[in-house]
Simulated assay, not measured.
Amino acid sequence: MSFEGSTLVDWPSFAKAKGELGADMPRILGYFREDGVKSVTAIEEAQRALNTAGLVIPAHTLKGEARQFGALPLADLAEKIEFMARDLMESRDTPETILEDVVALRPLFTQSLALLEREANPAREGAGLRDRRPVLGFGRRATPGGGFGRA
């Protein structure tokens, strides 16, 4: 499964989440990173152990958190794993049929998270020193042309 960077994240959904979370965005995204790593690991371990039931909750969790940030392909893949695991539980079958989806999950999570973190970071590319205001000290103001003590 391969996606281009522009299709990994629904940017209007991301912007909405960023607007709602405000200054808490980096912290909440950090929770998504931690929870996502745990969920992906739990899904992989359940797959290795052929534990169909063990796929459901971490896939469900990852689906919801990814959707919150606009990582829709990741959310869709986690949802597919969740629903297929539920179906396999009903039929009392093992999860060999979803191995390919489980294998695709970690790279998709990693790529999606990298894009989300890049956009959430206020010091991302293009926001370098030119965007900072000079530190002037008390009672001083910036002068045009950077003159020293000139009005």
Rank of each mutant, 00 (worst) to 15 (best):
G149W: 09
V56I: 15
L62E: 06
L113C: 04
F138L: 13
R92E: 13
P95R: 09
A85M: 04
V40H: 02
R67P: 00
L74F: 11
N51G: 03
T52F: 06
G126V: 03
A53K: 14
E100F: 07
A104Y: 03
A114Q: 13
L113A: 04
T61G: 05
P73K: 04
G139P: 05
R86K: 15
P144Y: 10
I43W: 00
R141A: 09
E100K: 12
L77E: 00
A71C: 10
G70S: 09
L116R: 01
R92G: 07
G64L: 10
S91W: 05
G147L: 12
L72P: 00
L88M: 12
L50M: 12
E79I: 03
R106V: 06
R124F: 05
G36E: 02
T143E: 09
T61L: 09
A66N: 05
R132G: 10
A75E: 05
E79V: 03
A78K: 01
V56T: 11
G137S: 13
R118I: 01
E117F: 04
V102I: 11
L74M: 12
R132A: 15
D35Q: 12
R140G: 00
K38Q: 15
V40Y: 04
D87W: 06
F109Y: 15
P134D: 13
I57W: 04
V56D: 01
T110S: 14
A49Y: 08
D101G: 01
T143L: 09
G139R: 10
E90N: 10
M84Y: 01
K80P: 00
R130Y: 08
P107L: 08
A114H: 07
G145S: 06
H60M: 11
R92K: 15
L99D: 12
K80C: 02
A104G: 07
V103H: 09
G70I: 08
V103W: 07
F138G: 02
P58Q: 09
K38S: 15
A78T: 03
T41M: 11
L50H: 11
E117H: 04
A59H: 00
E82N: 03
P122G: 05
T94F: 11
E65D: 14
G146I: 03
E90K: 14
V103F: 11
G126S: 09
A71D: 02
T97R: 14
V103E: 14
L113M: 14
A142L: 13
K80D: 02
T97C: 08
E45R: 14
G64W: 07
G145R: 11
A75C: 12
F148L: 13
T97H: 07
A46L: 03
G146P: 04
H60W: 07
L116H: 01
S91I: 10
T52V: 12
T94G: 02
L77Y: 00
T61K: 05
A120Y: 04
N121K: 05
R130Q: 13
